[in-house]
Design a protein around this nucleic acid. Structure first.
Lengths: 191, 191
DNA sequence: ACCTGAACACCGTTCAAGT
DNA sequence: ACCTGAACACCGTTCAAGT
């Protein structure tokens, strides 16, 4: 039996990939570091050459998740010239990401974990859309863009988290993530 | 050595109390069913007479958490006659609860856990305040109270979850939970 | 009816040893 | 430098046995 030989950090990425697989298959509560090693075909001690432990591997997985989320948000933000459309598409993309990768999303924002610096870029994209929306009188112009952006982030994040639960208490299954997000923002700001 | 003898479900409550202790001391990620049993002075198999397993014990803990949260919300909602004040106090109480009992809060809303029916009562309290706020033109009257209430719930929940992380990315440590909640609602609705 | 004692498979982590 | 093999304490859960 030829066992794969890893070099130059190839095992590191293989472990991250395996972790994402398990996350998608079994969920973040069943996640096991030993199983990640098993899938990569290495001993349970091998991951410790690349990560200080389970938490650091999950942090690396989170970082890649933040990068993927950022692409989705930046992509939708750039996909329209109309400010209202940009705000709504971006909002939909946030909740959509949570629904498409629920356990990755929950891992990224798990408990009291340390926030990723990558998330800052995404916040900046949202902040810029908010600046434009305030200029267009779509959002109240009184509060600072900073405050307004984190208020909207909180709303989207709450929607994402609460709609991931089951049974979907008060958050209909029938609605798509996009409808949930846009419906909420439309209701709050009369867009 | 006299070992406590449990009867009539006394062990059940002792296990729930012990679980809340561990949650407060070590956090929900370090929570261990065996340690709960150890603290109660029983064998690790004993809890299985009262709960089907770890998840069911945590569900029972969550239920008591929902009851405590409900008291806090209903209490603040009744503490003022002014509609605006009621809405803001209730909002502050939600985020305050999360900060005062972070790991209990995270356990209640952990991952994809099943929502507690007890939470429905709390939602009803919020919905009623929203009805009054809409009548007083404090909140937009167009959307249904149901939609408006879950939008606000999502906002408060997002604030709670995100402000629990560390370092408090974009959510200042300096702000009290109450200021965080009222500041956000004030910004969004121009209250 | 309720709890113990002992076991099972599995977990995260450590460390001496191999190559 | 990177990985193995074996061990450690601990985990959730099961089950026959005690009272």
């Amino acid at each position: 039996m030829t066992r794969a030989t890893y070099h130059h950090g190839a095992l590191r990425q293989a472990l991250i990939d395996g972790a994402r697989e398990i996350l998608a298959e079994r969920g973040h509560e069943q996640f096991s570091l030993n199983e990640v090693a098993r899938r990569a075909g290495v001993s349970t001690a091998a991951p410790y050459r690349h990560f200080s432990g389970k938490d650091e591997l999950l942090a690396a997985v989170s970082d890649q998740g933040y990068a993927t989320l950022h692409e989705a948000l930046a992509g939708t933000a750039a996909s329209a010239t109309d400010v209202r459309e940009r705000l709504l598409r971006m909002s939909g993309a946030y909740v959509r990401f949570a629904h498409d990768h629920p356990d990755l999303f929950l891992t990224m924002f798990r408990g009291r974990a340390v926030a990723s610096p990558v998330g800052v870029e995404s916040f900046e994209v949202l902040r810029q859309v908010v600046v434009d929306a305030q200029a267009a009188a779509l959002l109240p112009a009184g509060p600072s863009p900073e405050l307004m952006a984190r208020s909207i982030w909180a709303t989207l994040h709450g929607l994402a988290v609460l709609s991931l639960r089951r049974p979907h208490e008060r958050f209909g299954l029938d609605e798509s993530p996009e409808d949930l997000a846009t419906g909420t923002l439309t209701a709050m700001f009369g867009l």
